[in-house]
Each structure stands twice: as structure tokens, then as C-alpha cells.
């Protein structure tokens, strides 16, 4: 059911070996925990090197976690469960002598599917790649590779899609197409977990976000909650007034012939606007100001630097 926890990741740790004969170890995940609910889009947010790809590689079984566990529908994630997961690697590369359609066929064979041509046509349409379907992949642009990559992740009709930086390296138009595609997938009933370091994208299309800083989950929650209701502010602007009405709360500023005010409480807005209108002012705009993920992110990063330094 929508909203049920599909995937839960609990306190993952991971060391990478390095140095002479790989005898030394470097810890890159220090406790990554989050959950993914069915039917939702969850963004795994973090700067480069935060450990997003490492986390995904553990989920897909490429790497073994040194600690922690991953549950899928309450059971330890097995190879069988992985067949319900579609995956798109970071900067994906496929055999580039295949055409788009051949890649999807090859993928279908890896899933031992029978009678897949209909599904392949459907997917090509879904990712808007019908026209390029018979071109070899080496002729594809980055955005096209990314889209055919999403299509190959969908071949087996998985419940959960894991996309590693699907929006990375695309031009604005390509990003737009892919964002829409992710939202379409949610509408088809898929659950999506994707990583990004681009906060605006996460803010636009995700239901939930998990913020990873230096290999640790530092915040997790619904986007609205992360952005925080109580910290919202409202910006009002008026023409025809030179100063705030006496006794008005908030911060005020006159720029040119426009008066700007920032109010901290929702209930202050209505009386203030009425007062200004009474004084002959003209409302130009009223905008609720929300915190951006960017701000949250910067704060969290500073905190974690502080606690380490």
C-alpha cells in the first residue's frame, strides 16, 4: 500500500580498502539510515563524496556493508528481492554497439522474460525514445543515454527504482524531461529512490529527502517538514507608502518607491494589509518565503564540521 515502508536502511557502515595491498581501510559510511515509503519519491541528498553511490552499491549487492542492514518489506534484502528493483548507475554506460531497442532486449533476457516486445515499445514511448530506438547507443547524447537507462531499469516492471544522479550532467531541457519522467513514474505507481546534489531538483519533485553529510544521515523527512512551517516568512510589498504603519511588526525597507516588509507570523499578514490599504497603499505582492533545502544543507554542513573540527 502507498505509504508503507518498502525499503529500510539501518545504520550502514562501509570501509574501502586502500594503500599497499589494500591493507588499510578508510571509513566512508559512518551510519546511513533512512527508509523509503511505497509510492513516494525519495531523494538522497549530499555533496560529492557524501556516500550516495556507495550506499546504492550496497543496496544493489555490488559491495558488502561492514555494518548495519537493509530490509525490503521487512526482510533482509535478498537477490530475489533485488529482482523487484530497477537500477540506473551513476553516469551509466551500456554496450555502445547495441541500439536502444537491443539494449532493452538484452536486459529483458537478463531477467529471463518472455514476450517482451510490447513492454519494450511501451517503455520507449514512456521515455520518449521511439525515434532513436534503432540508433546505436554511441550516437546518443548524455540525456538520451540517461533516458534509455531509465527504460532499461524499468524492463522488469520493478516496484522500486533506484537512480544514481539521474539529473547530473544534463542541460536544462534534459533535466526537465527527466524530472517529468520521474514524476510520471510515481503516477504509474512506482516508488523512486534517487540521489542528487542539486537541491532545487530535490525540492521540486521529491516527497521525502534524506540528507547525507560525510557518510552519515543527518536529516530525514518529508520535504514540507524539512523546509519547516514555523520558519516560513512572508514578504509583502506596497506602492504608495513611504513607511510602515505605526506599530507594525516585522522588518521594513524602502527600495525606490516600493516598500517591502518581512513578516514572521501568518496571522500578522491580514491586519497589516488592511491597515496599509486604509492608508492609501496599493498591494504589489504577497509571497510566502520558505527556507530552501540549500539553507538547511549549509547549516547541517556547518554543524557537522563543527562537531568534527
Amino acid at each position: 500500500m502507498t505509504g508503507d515502508v518498502l525499503l529500510s536502511v539501518e545504520d550502514l557502515t562501509k570501509d574501502y580498502p586502500w594503500g599497499l595491498l589494500w591493507l588499510k581501510h578508510k571509513r566512508v559510511l559512518h551510519g546511513v539510515s533512512f527508509s523509503v515509503s511505497q509510492g513516494e519519491i525519495t531523494a538522497l541528498l549530499g555533496h560529492n563524496g557524501a556516500g550516495k553511490s556507495t550506499t546504492f552499491k550496497i543496496l544493489m549487492g555490488f559491495l558488502r556493508a561492514d555494518g548495519g542492514r537493509v530490509l525490503y518489506r521487512g526482510e533482509p534484502l535478498s537477490r530475489k528481492a533485488r529482482s523487484y528493483i530497477g537500477f540506473l548507475p551513476e553516469n551509466p554506460a551500456f554496450y555502445d554497439y547495441l541500439t536502444g531497442r537491443e539494449l532493452l532486449r538484452f536486459t529483458a533476457e537478463l531477467f529471463s522474460l518472455k514476450r517482451f516486445e510490447g513492454r519494450i515499445d511501451h517503455l520507449l514511448r514512456l521515455v520518449k525514445m521511439e525515434e532513436a530506438a534503432n540508433l546505436p547507443l554511441k550516437k546518443y547524447s548524455k540525456g538520451m543515454v540517461q533516458r534509455i537507462g531509465v527504460a532499461q531499469a524499468l524492463v522488469s516492471n520493478p516496484e522500486l527504482l533506484i537512480l544514481d544522479e539521474p539529473l547530473d550532467g544534463l542541460d536544462p531541457e534534459g533535466r526537465q524531461i527527466l524530472r517529468n519522467l520521474i514524476v510520471d513514474l510515481k503516477e504509474e505507481g512506482k516508488t523512486v529512490l534517487y540521489s542528487t546534489h542539486i537541491l532545487q531538483d530535490a525540492e521540486r519533485i521529491s516527497d521525502r529527502a534524506v540528507i547525507l553529510v560525510k557518510g552519515k544521515t543527518v536529516k530525514e523527512g518529508r520535504i514540507e517538514d524539512l523546509l519547516g512551517g514555523e520558519t516560513s516568512e512572508y514578504e509583502v510589498s506596497f506602492k504608495g507608502l513611504r513607511e510602515a504603519p505605526p506599530g507594525a511588526k516585522g522588518r521594513w525597507q524602502l527600495r525606490g518607491d516600493t516598500l517591502y516588509g518581512i513578516l514572521e507570523k501568518e496571522e500578522e499578514v491580514q491586519p497589516l494589509v488592511q491597515e496599509c490599504l486604509r492608508r492609501g497603499g496599493q498591494v504589489l505582492s504577497l509571497v510566502p518565503l520558505r527556507r530552501t533545502l540549500e539553507e538547511i544543507f549549509m547549516e547541517l554542513k556547518d554543524e557537522s564540521n563543527g562537531s568534527r573540527g
Binding site: M60, F62, R79, K80, S83, P92, A93, T107, F111, Q152
Partner: peptide, 14 residues
């Protein structure tokens, strides 16, 4: 090197 292996091994292929 080209990481095509990630794509192949993310399928239910042991």
C-alpha cells in the same frame, strides 16, 4: 572501466 558491469550485475544475474 566503462562500468557496464554495474548495469549487467544489477539485474538478477549472479
Amino acid at each position: 572501466d566503462r562500468k557496464t558491469i554495474l548495469n549487467v550485475l544489477s539485474k538478477p544475474l549472479s
